[in-house]
Amino acid sequence: MSNLSSEEKKILAFLEGDLPLTESPFREIAGELQVSEEKVVGIVKRLLDRGILRRVGAVIRHRKAGYSANAMVVWRLGGEMVDSVEEIIKKYPQVTHAYFRRIYPGKWEYNFYTMIHGKSDEELGLLIRSLADDLRCDDFRILRTVKELKKTSPVYLKRGKEDYEKNRKI
C-alpha cells in the first residue's frame, strides 16, 4: 500500500469515477479541496509518475467499437515459452489481457490466459491460430463469451464500509 495524502486519496476517488464533461473538468474537485486547478493537475501527474495511476483517459466499450467476437483463450504453455511470451503478446493489440495463473494439477493445467477481441468470428479464429503458432502451443481451450453479465469500472477508494461488510459477511 502506497503512502497517500488525504488530498491524493480524494483525487484518486474523483478519478475513479467519470471526469465531468465540462470546460474545466478539474474545477469542481479543486474547489472541494480548496486548491487551484493547477495544483490538482500537478498531483495527478505525480500519481501517474509514481505508477499509482496506470493512465488517465478514455475506456471504450470494445463491442460498440466493432469488436464483437470475444474469447478467453487459456493455454498450457511449456516452460521454454515462459520467458518469451512478453515479446509475442506485445505484437497483438487484439490481446488486451495476458496473465499466468494458478493451475490445479490433474484437473486444470492451463497456466496462461489471454483475452482476445476480433471484429468477426473469422478474424478471432485466425488470431487464435496465429497466436498458437507463435506460442508453439497446441494445447489450448477457447472459452467464448456467451453473455456479458456484468462489466463495471472498479471501485477502490470510494468503497464504503458497508460494501466491504457485504463482501465479507454474505
Binding site: D18, L19, L21, G51, I52, L53, V59, S153, P154
Partner: peptide
C-alpha cells in the same frame, strides 16, 4: 464507457 483514471490496485 468512462473517461477517468485507471488505478493500479496493488498500490492502493
Amino acid at each position: 464507457r468512462r473517461i477517468g483514471g485507471i488505478i493500479n490496485k496493488e498500490k492502493v
